[in-house]
Nucleic acid binder design. Sequence first.
DNA 1: CAGTATCCTATCCGATACTG
DNA 2: CAGTATCGGATAGGATACTG
Lengths: 229, 229
Amino acid sequence: MSAYGQYCPMAKALEILGDRWTLLIVRDMITGTTHFNELERGLPGISRALLAKRLRQLQDGGVIQKRNHRSGRQTTEYHLTEAGFALRDVVNGLLDWGAAWAFGDPTPQELDPLLLLWWMHQRVNRDQLADDRVVVQFDFYGAETGSYWLVLTPDDVTLCLTDPGYELNVLVTADLATFFKLWLGRISYQDAIRDSRVLVEGIPRHVRAFPRWFAWSPAAGAVRAAQEA
Amino acid sequence: MSAYGQYCPMAKALEILGDRWTLLIVRDMITGTTHFNELERGLPGISRALLAKRLRQLQDGGVIQKRNHRSGRQTTEYHLTEAGFALRDVVNGLLDWGAAWAFGDPTPQELDPLLLLWWMHQRVNRDQLADDRVVVQFDFYGAETGSYWLVLTPDDVTLCLTDPGYELNVLVTADLATFFKLWLGRISYQDAIRDSRVLVEGIPRHVRAFPRWFAWSPAAGAVRAAQEA
DNA sequence: CAGTATCCTATCCGATACTG
DNA sequence: CAGTATCGGATAGGATACTG
């Protein structure tokens, strides 16, 4: 019984969208995610069973469509319908409100480096990559400590939890909370570098190009706008 | 554990707003509801315990404020904060999306005449009431059958489940589903009257004035806009 | 009017394993 | 890759009754 029993457009909308995780799934799909395992990676804490259930509910609600390719090895893609794309306003509304009224510095529980790197690897400006291949190592410290690697080529971006072995081009050393705030637009790249809270090392050409390799968080604009107001 | 653990403005917004009933409470407060029992009446199916909990969560989230008047007999009012008023965009976004993509004819479960009358009594244009007192009787038929009364004065609107005894001024006879659709803007008053699906009787002056006594549903505009598109 | 208190059930989550 | 199956523990939610 997830229905409200009210003949009201908002109640009907919430019957489709109001369950836990559902609007975060839509958020990820609006930014281009199409695969089950990608969605799962972007939603740490959701169980695979529950994600499958939510995707079924979104299909039933007419928000997404399931498409199967190749009948042999399963390859399923989920795509937004026209109704799903129309949720952009709702998603942006929540993003803007959250940025203005519910967003502070990250809590320790929110400092998940793997989620941050997962987001980053999805937001690489491939057209900004001049070289054949760039290897970036991230050394985080603070509450969580660890090293992660991104291997960037114009065709492909790979996230590694162990040293991929290639020659390193850029080394980023940063407090994890600070880098999260940078990613979300709460502090500027210039400030982070100037205060030495984020250190980017490598040959000057790569160091200069580094900030342009990423599109940064889709929410960064809303966060900056909220801070200026 | 209602947190998502994501450092993202939308996830943070949904940690405050994403629970069942919460955004419907905000919807009702945006349209002017301030009292606990009024909220409960507008949300059939919610338990008093859960409503109290949600109101506490909305306070903790900075969306509403609780104000106590008179220490003797308890009189509490809930008011939106600035952050709460800022949710108007989110609420309207969901309303518009619901009207466009999730709103059809009412299901039998949604035909609650008491909720309809509760909504109507909240949306009376008191400045349109010329007389001292107008008594309107609603006779519904269809899935649910029953009679209800509204007693309208410029100072006060009362909803009665039994004949209030005063002289009747207007008698409305209608199929409940049809009157719901009229209330929500899915059909026009002219069409409903012309097709005799809604019958309004009384002295001509009252009958002519009747449709102006109500502001109709706050969602009617969105529903009409969605139907034209 | 404005809530608590209590009990019970449905759902969710986390882990683990398995399938085509 | 894309799920389903199962199981146990933890909450969330609903029904009902009671209070200052």
